[in-house]
Amino acid sequence: MARMKFICDAERCIECNSCVTACKNEHEVPWGVNRRRVVTVNDGVVGAEKSISVACMHCSDAPCMAVCPVDCFYRTEDGVVLHDKDVCIGCGYCSYACPFGAPQFPSEGTFGVRGKMDKCTFCNGGPEANGSEAEFEKYGRNRLAEGKLPLCAEMCSTKALLGGDGDVIADILRNRVIKRGKGGDVFGWGTAYGGVKAQPAAGTPPAAPGAAPTAPAAPASEGSAS
């Protein structure tokens, strides 16, 4: 059985927000709720700006499921984390526990009205009958039941956002990363640690400032004269 996951390639994301728009349009998401959003770090800094599309990551050990006092969250056979709005009491514990800010309160009126929590469903609907009006009204369209993948991933113009079987999309990203570099820099080691500097051998005096590095002396062979 497939285990559904999302992966966003930060090297390809161009912050076009097509994934956000596709999600809101497909599921008629309530006002004030963004099941998916694009987060940008180092915004405006040339060469350092990175964007990533964020939603519910459908964790294997989901913290929202652990803290929910009424157990309204459940996991499907495909590994998709969903919740039952008929059981939800709107306490908000899940929104505090989720590191991605996926569960959200719908906002209506001047100050907002707390109601049933809403979150990304991986386009998998809810506990109601697949394709029913009740399911669409509460959770949006069930594309997985139609044999389709989440629309946010399908609408990504640069294919930065990948959604589907976790093993398949991990292989896709792995192949991309391998083609971008070589050695340890493939996984960003040089970026994270600023390169690896060679350490001088024990007993070697420090070089004078500005002096050219010298090659280490070859070790004496066994039996040589002292």
Rank of each mutant, 00 (worst) to 15 (best):
P150F: 03
T158M: 07
K148N: 09
T158G: 04
R141E: 15
M155K: 11
G194Y: 06
N175S: 06
F187E: 05
K138M: 11
R141A: 14
I178S: 03
C152E: 15
N175H: 00
I169M: 08
G163F: 08
G183P: 03
L161G: 08
I169E: 10
L149C: 02
I169R: 07
T191S: 11
G195R: 04
N175P: 00
A134Q: 14
F136G: 00
R174N: 14
W189K: 01
L162Y: 08
G147H: 09
G164W: 06
K148W: 02
F187T: 05
S157F: 00
A134E: 15
E133H: 06
Y139C: 04
A160W: 02
L173F: 04
T158Y: 02
A134V: 09
E146C: 02
K182Q: 10
L144V: 13
G195W: 05
K148I: 03
G194I: 06
T191C: 01
D165T: 08
E137D: 13
V177Y: 00
G131Q: 09
G183S: 07
R174Q: 09
M155D: 11
N130S: 14
G183V: 01
C152Q: 13
I178P: 00
L149A: 14
V168H: 07
D167G: 09
M155V: 14
N130H: 14
F136N: 00
Y193R: 11
E154H: 00
L149E: 14
G147D: 08
G166D: 15
T191D: 15
N130G: 11
C152L: 04
D165Q: 04
T191K: 12
K179G: 04
N130Q: 13
A160H: 01
E154F: 03
R174Y: 05
G166I: 10
Y193D: 05
E133T: 10
R180H: 04
G181M: 04
L151W: 01
R141T: 12
S132I: 06
S157V: 15
E154C: 09
G140P: 02
K138I: 03
A160K: 03
D171K: 14
I169N: 07
G195A: 03
L151Q: 13
E146A: 14
A170C: 12
I169W: 05
G181N: 13
Y139T: 02
A170F: 13
L161F: 07
L162H: 11
W189H: 10
E154S: 09
G194L: 11
L173I: 14
Y193S: 12
D185Y: 06
K159M: 11
G164D: 06
D167R: 12
E137W: 03
E135F: 02
G184K: 10
M155I: 12
G164Y: 01
C156F: 06
D167A: 15
A192H: 04
A170W: 07
V186L: 15
A153M: 04
G194Q: 05
G181A: 13
G147P: 01
E146M: 12
G183Q: 01
I172F: 05
A145T: 04
N130T: 15
G188P: 08
V186C: 11
G181W: 01
L144E: 01
R176L: 05
L162D: 02
L161K: 08
Y193F: 15
G183C: 05
P150H: 11
D171W: 01
I178G: 00
I172V: 15
G147Q: 03
